[in-house]
């Protein structure tokens, strides 16, 4: 069943169109930066962007910083919201279940498919970012990269930091996916599930900035989303990254558990 889900994912034009669009935006940004040479001042504009003009190798991180606030969560929420509700809407859910495919097995396969999509999307953006950064912004002949703290990094250092960043952002997106996947087992409308997932993110983003919500801030799903920037400081302050992983893990476990509990017992009337 997992193989079938992956074949469905990779065989669908929409998968590639959405990933293509995700990759397009950072490229557009890189082109503008390269042509004008105007970088946002430090502390303004998308994360890390002020640092990339000097060094294109930092652009994968900047590229993910560009798509992270909106595009990536939208793409992941649409994909995960579609997973069960989309089958319900196309009328194929009932035929899968009477094939028979066990409900738990179906849900696991859907989860794996969403994880694969998330990883594919994050890696594609990072790879496009790297290529765009190197070719458009250049490496300015430097072998080392300057961190946000002003120290220098070797290419090997930069490589593992970028790798950890990809995993961290991927895991944050799994948090988004589990919200949408849970909603996808509640409704037969993929649109409702995806929008519901986004509504949770928007609410969280609003509450994070609200001082009055300080009591719950540290438990909100988007609270530590940008903590991966810390990976480009020296030495790396691991506190926020660790907290972010734990918070996301909490959401993933609870929501996937709820999705399973709901889907394995509900009446399928679609």
């Amino acid at each position: 069943m997992i193989g079938v889900e992956l074949r469905k994912l990779l065989g669908r034009p929409r998968t590639w169109v959405s990933i293509g669009l995700l990759c397009l935006l950072p490229v557009v940004v890189a082109v503008f930066l390269a042509v004008t040479g105007i970088a946002p001042r430090p502390g303004q504009g998308p994360t890390l962007l002020s640092a990339v003009l000097g060094n294109g190798a930092l652009f994968p991180a900047a590229a993910l910083g560009i798509v992270l606030p909106f595009f990536l969560p939208i793409a992941v929420a649409v994909q995960a919201g579609e997973s069960v509700a989309g089958e319900a809407q196309s009328g194929t859910l009932r035929y899968l279940l009477v094939r028979p495919v066990g409900r738990t097995r179906l849900l696991v396969a859907k989860l794996v498919s969403v994880l694969a999509y998330t990883l594919l999307a994050v890696l594609s953006v990072a790879a496009t970012g790297y290529l765009a950064g190197i070719s458009l912004l250049g490496n300015s002949g430097q072998v080392t990269t300057t961190t946000l703290s002003g120290t220098t990094l070797t290419p090997a250092d930069l490589a593992w930091r970028t790798g950890v960043m990809v995993l961290y952002i991927g895991w944050s997106m799994v948090g988004v996916a589990s919200v949408a996947l849970f909603l996808s087992t509640l409704t037969d409308s993929p649109l409702a599930a995806a929008l519901g997932g986004l509504a949770v993110l928007v609410s969280s983003t609003v509450l994070v900035t609200l001082d009055a919500a300080g009591a719950v801030r540290d438990y909100l799903p988007t609270r530590y989303w940008l903590a991966w920037v810390d990976l480009f400081r020296d030495p790396v302050p691991w506190g926020d990254v660790t907290a972010g992983v734990l918070v996301q893990t909490g959401y993933v476990v609870v929501l996937l558990g709820a999705a399973w509990a709901n889907f394995s017992t509900r009446d399928v009337t679609s």
């Binding site: 196309s90 009328g91 194929t92 009932r94 035929y95 009477v98 094939r99 028979p100």
Partner: peptide
């Protein structure tokens, strides 16, 4: 169910 063929409320297929 492997020995049952079913058509429930219209067909379903990936368009």
């Amino acid at each position: 169910l492997p020995e049952v063929g079913a058509l429930v409320e219209g067909p379903g297929a990936y368009p």
